[in-house]
Structures are given as structure tokens and as C-alpha cells.
Design a protein around this nucleic acid. Structure first.
Lengths: 152, 152
DNA sequence: CTGACTGCAAAATCTTTGCAAAGAC
DNA sequence: GTCTTTGCAAAGATTTTGCAGTCAG
């Protein structure tokens, strides 16, 4: 996994190159996603930061603006849930896909070389310049399967 | 492709089994998705139906309610676009995945057996009861690539 | 008839925007 | 100092819900 200092440098370069400014808020959001391995809604990120830094006020609008900025820069990626919005995760890890439990919302990550390779072949076949790809396997996770059994 | 009459029968059985009612509005929405091969937002469907049947008033709420019903029944499937909502398509065609152009929003469908098979293996590996899966390859489609070149 | 469905409008979500004050460079 | 960013609150966009009337079975 990329080192936090390296990440910070990368982030600062991107900021600089775009003529943007480096602010505490932006750093905290990057740091949060770096430190917490997982998938978060903008609101969750906002709440967590409020909790962790009670003396700072970070507006939800800033979280949205920053996430959108970070996503453009490729530092975070998002996974969407229809009308129920998006969840964000740190983007500079090895590419991976997701298993999503439609009952409890749990997300399991996995990576599969066969699929990764095949996706590239498909994009090529359609003359598509692939910039990203996502795969979601939707279903019921093991623990939810067990719960359902118990209830019946 | 499944015949419209067969589809209608299927739809009616589902309706009956669930103790629901068969209404003109529901039929029109199913028919629209059957007739129009493509991906539509609830609003697009609503507008199209308003256009096609000017003497009927179909509320947007009904479209949402029906789509959700149809999705549960497996007759339509949806593809999500983050905060920009969902698009729906007719669901009883061969399973397939999507290439999405992030510039013009075009959606190309494709189907790949290698990926389909691999997805099942992965779900099994994680003891996941797969009910559905989606793959999106995001990028720039060929015609948008050409346009960008011309502008430069 | 009875209970489900509909359209409407109001409410609820989630996200974006306008603006004055604050902060980065 | 200048120009971007921020937080707030208000505005937008999308989806859901409550309700009285309507319609299918």
C-alpha cells in the first residue's frame, strides 16, 4: 500500500498543478479515506470528521466538493447505489471489484485477474478507451443467509 | 427475444400470485420497455408515455412505483448513475453488461461468457448467494474520441 | 363491494449553488 | 493583496409518501 507521505505529495502536486489550494479540510478528507479502509457516504465522512476533530467545522458541502475533486484526480473512487447515493473509498489501492449484500449493505472486495484482463479485451473490441471499470456482484452474504434461515 | 404475449402472460401471473391488480398504467410501462430497446430514466419513461398516450395521465409516482415493482419481479433491471439516479431497461433479455461513455452517456451492451462464468465462481468462493451482477466499463466511446481529436 | 392503485401535492433525500467571510499563496 | 475555499443556508433534483377518489376483481 502506498505510503501516506507519498500520497500527500501526490495530492499536493495535483493541487498545485491545477492552481488549487491546499487546505486542512481537503487533507483531513484524504487522510480519513486513507486511514479507514472501507466505503463511506459523504455524510458518514462528514460525521466521522466532526467526531474526530470536534473543534473544526467541516461543512457537508465541502465534503461533497472535495470528494468530487478527489474523484476527478483519481485519488478516490466511488460506487453507486442508485438513488441512494454513492459511497467513496480510497482510490490508490490495487484495482478490485465488489460483492454487495443487498440485505445488509455489506461490501466485500475482491480482485480477479481473469476478469481484469477480459475487461481490457472487451474495451478494445469496442474501440472504447477504458478509463475505469466496476463490477458488482449483488446478492445475499453468508451471514444474512444464515439469519434468514434462523428466522424461518 | 421473448414474445410480447408471453411476457404479458408472465406479468399477469406475477401480478395475480402477489394479489396485485393489473392496470393499464402497469401494462403501458412494461410495453414501453419491451418496445424500446434501451435504457431510460423514470422521467424519460413518464414523458414518453405522456407523449404516446396524451389522453392518459400517468403520474411520475406511478412510474416509480411500477418500476420498483417490476424490478422486484425481475421484469426490468436497473443501472445506476450515482446521484444522477437510475436507468431502467427491459429485464428478460439475455444477461449482459454495459460499456458506458462518460462523455456522452451512451450505453453499449455486451455479453461475455468468460466473465459470466467467472462471476459465478467468485460468488461461490465467498459463499455469496448471487442474485444479480453488473459490470460497467467506463470510458470514452469511439465517436467521442474522434470528436475530441477534431477539436484539438 | 373491497381492497389495491392512481394522481396529486407535499415531504423526504441527497446534492449543488450563491454568497460573504476566511484562508492559502 | 488576490483569488480560491469554506460554511451556512437556501435552492435543486430526484424519489417517496399520504390521502381521497377511482378502478380492478
Amino acid at each position: 500500500m502506498i505510503d501516506y507521505d507519498v500520497l500527500l505529495d501526490k495530492f499536493k502536486s495535483i493541487i498545485k498543478e491545477s492552481g488549487l489550494k491546499y487546505t486542512k479540510q481537503r487533507e483531513l478528507i484524504v487522510k480519513f479515506l486513507y486511514d479507514n479502509n472501507g466505503h463511506f457516504t459523504p455524510e458518514e465522512i462528514n460525521d466521522a470528521l466532526k467526531n474526530e476533530y470536534p473543534d473544526m467545522t467541516i461543512g457537508i458541502a465541502t465534503v461533497y466538493r472535495t470528494l468530487s475533486l478527489l474523484e476527478d484526480a483519481g485519488l478516490v473512487t466511488s460506487i453507486s447505489f442508485g438513488a441512494q447515493g454513492k459511497k467513496y473509498e480510497f482510490g490508490l489501492k490495487k484495482h478490485h471489484d465488489h460483492l454487495v449484500c443487498k440485505q445488509c449493505g455489506a461490501i466485500i472486495e475482491f480482485c480477479d485477474d481473469i476478469i481484469e484482463k477480459r475487461q481490457q479485451e472487451i474495451a478494445k473490441k469496442f474501440n472504447f478507451k477504458m478509463t475505469d471499470h466496476t463490477m458488482k456482484i449483488i446478492g445475499i452474504c453468508q451471514s444474512c443467509q444464515n439469519q434468514t434461515k434462523n428466522k424461518e
